[in-house]
């Protein structure tokens, strides 16, 4: 779970009036930020924050712990975003096919590898890159956009994203992968044009490492090579989505 949100909810549940304003500020930042990322405009983000936090005030005491409350809070915020009045100008209605998202055979591997040596810090600071990233995220169909935002931007766990979305973990992972690939492909042209060339940096040593996460996942973290997991077909959400068909359209 997003630790900032969880901590703020703990403060509110504890009734600590001295820390109230700090907690409210954190929640406003989280919920308004979520609304901006999903809806892409200030008006809908403000509505999302206002309605979500008013509902929180009514139901603050109904949840046994802050984590359950945080999941509920994201569910409410998500519903508010889905009811948003203004449609994103980028969002298409269609679903994403992994087959269609695969890179072309002609993509030059060496050039691609070198261009993406740009560091996250470098890209995060660039206004132009930021704009491209926003555009790429907003161009995702909402079911994919929500999963990507919850998992990678809000940094919820897979099971928490699944809970917020009301879908299975397998479907969550499938949507997440397609969403990431879509965003990566949308950024590729810009990155290859704009990335500085840093001689001597090697990509290969970092390849085998998972991306470090900001939140503490120590309780249920699985290593890149867990010992006992099975790839067998698991329970899936409805809506006709098959999580084991990499090339299917969902």
């Amino acid at each position: 779970m997003n630790t900032q949100v969880q901590r703020a909810l703990e403060i509110l549940k504890s009734g600590d009036a001295r820390a109230f304003d700090r907690a409210l500020e954190s929640l406003q930042a989280a919920v308004y930020g979520f609304g901006m990322k999903v809806c892409g405009n200030r008006e809908d983000a403000e509505d999302t924050a206002q309605e979500t936090l008013l509902r929180l005030a009514r139901q603050l005491k109904d949840f046994p712990d802050a984590r359950a409350l945080a999941v509920w809070l994201y569910k409410v915020a998500k519903s508010q975003c889905l009811m948003s009045r203004r449609r994103s100008k980028f969002a298409p209605a269609q679903m994403l096919s992994l087959e269609a998202l695969m890179p072309a055979q002609t993509e030059p591997a060496g050039a691609t590898l070198k261009s993406w040596e740009i560091t996250p810090e470098e890209v995060a600071l660039r206004q132009e890159f930021r704009g491209k990233l926003e555009q790429a995220i907003l161009s995702l169909p909402k079911p994919y956009r929500l999963v990507l935002i919850l998992r990678d931007l809000e940094q919820l766990e897979t099971r928490e994203v699944a809970e917020v979305m009301g879908i299975s973990e397998d479907t969550t992972k499938m949507r997440l992968h397609r969403a990431r690939v879509h965003v990566r492909n949308a950024l590729a042209d810009y990155v290859q044009r704009a990335a500085p060339r840093s001689p001597g940096r090697s990509v290969a040593p970092s390849v085998a490492r998972p991306v470090p996460r900001r939140v503490d996942r120590s309780a249920d973290r699985r290593s890149p090579a867990p010992a006992t997991a099975s790839t067998g077909r698991r329970r899936h959400a409805g809506r006709g989505e098959s999580a084991t068909a990499p090339s299917g359209t969902i």
Binding site: Y32, K37, A124, V181, V203, V211
Partner: peptide, 29 residues
Amino acid sequence: IAYLESLKTTIQACRKYQVRQIPRPSPRV
């Protein structure tokens, strides 16, 4: 390898993305 690295960079950029200019919560809230 190249695609994996580019995907990793994309994920890291997403994780660093933050919304700017957060308005104050309304007095009603």
